[in-house]
Design a protein around this nucleic acid. Structure first.
Lengths: 209, 209
DNA sequence: CGTTATTTTAAACGCCTGTTTAAACTGAGT
DNA sequence: ACTCAGTTTAAACAGGCGTTTAAAATAACG
């Protein structure tokens, strides 16, 4: 395993767990068992390392997501919102084959990126991977054409918030839930729960002004 | 204005904007125009200052929220979920009379507390203010008794996530939305949008196993 | 083998962090 | 006016941070 990948793996794990601000390069390099200076040698800076960690996932996810949504948009028959959101599951869960805990790590990172570092990650994702968002908007619009652009805007961000926030605290939540209900729960189980929730939220009746 | 309050005000503003980890005591004391050592003198430590900032809001909010929800629970007539969530609005918006930008500051702080500092704020709130949560659960149960405890658990956390996450990035979102749709948007407007969303989410049909 | 490139290493850099210290100041109460 | 508790102050503390340096080790190639 190359030094570069050792760093990426350790950084991914620690960033997901403790946030970008909350993780130091010394923690990363000591967990990766490489020299401290290796980060700056291979990536240039901590900020570039963060981008690299996210890019590794996005480059894996974004084409799968695009094609999954493309199928939906191209289909002739009408679409339900549950179908649209379900189109996200398979690509997201496929991250687990690509890497252990891939799905939950990625979603946790996404959550961190929204709140840590004053939104620079949001900028990074929307400018570097704009197709993911626009495809998704198109699919939702097909499933629920009555939504005005403004309502769509808010509901998509609410959805983003629900998923990302849930996942960024999913470890703690799963712990509590497993204790309360005496059953094993995994990330796929949480996703199964969240889909009807967000689908119903987006499909909520339009409130009159 | 006392030194203690000057510190609390500055800390609240900065914590909401940049997170707990992202704000240093030096930033706080220089914005408050007090000596650096004043924080440790009056509050003991940074962690205690965080608690104090949150407690100031919770002590204002929690009794209002409790009585608002109590009215709902005591009422004889059936309850809708929109009513339950609406019962949150008035107490939350009343924070704006108590303090400028009170509502949005408080909700942003709540969002920070979930992701920063590895969930110690969640522990603090659930142990110090348990009635707020249990009253809310009771009200939702009355409005939608078919929900199993497990589904209830997840949907309430999804809702918490939606609201808290939205509010913690509300400044950025409002900026984008005002630009896209050419109209002034305030925090109350966002709340008006989010209520039908979360109400529909919680009320989503129960998914069969 | 000898000579480049590339990578790894230990050490240091300057800066920032939360916290502590001890001295200076402030405003009653006697 | 003097005392004494409460408060504010400047200075320092030890430790962590991201980054840089220059030397050492390793790999690649003619």
């Amino acid at each position: 395993m190359s030094t570069k990948n050792k760093i990426l793996d350790a950084a991914e794990y620690l960033f997901a767990d403790k946030g970008f601000n909350g993780t130091s390069l010394r923690e990363i390099t000591s967990q990766a068992e490489v020299n401290l200076a290796a980060v700056n040698y291979h990536f240039g800076s901590k900020k570039e390392l963060i981008k690299a960690v996210m890019s590794r996932y996005m480059n894996e996810l974004s084409p799968r997501l695009e094609s999954s949504l493309q199928v939906l948009c191209d289909s002739e028959q009408p679409l339900t919102l549950v179908e649209v959101f379900s189109a996200f599951i398979e690509p997201l869960l496929s991250l687990n084959e690509y890497k252990e805990n891939g799905t939950s790590n990625f979603l946790q990172l996404l959550g961190r990126g929204y709140t840590d570092s004053q939104g620079f990650l949001r900028w990074f994702l929307t400018t570097q991977y704009p197709n993911v968002i626009s495809n998704f908007v198109a699919a939702v619009q097909k499933a629920y054409p009555e939504l005005t652009p403004e309502e769509m805007f808010w509901r998509l961000h609410f959805t983003m918030g629900t998923v990302v926030f849930t996942m960024s605290s999913s470890d703690a939540l799963i712990d509590i839930a497993e204790n309360d209900f005496n059953k094993k729960i995994d990330i796929a189980g949480v996703i199964r729960q969240v889909i009807p929730y967000v689908a119903a939220g987006v499909a909520a009746p339009i409130s009159l002004p």
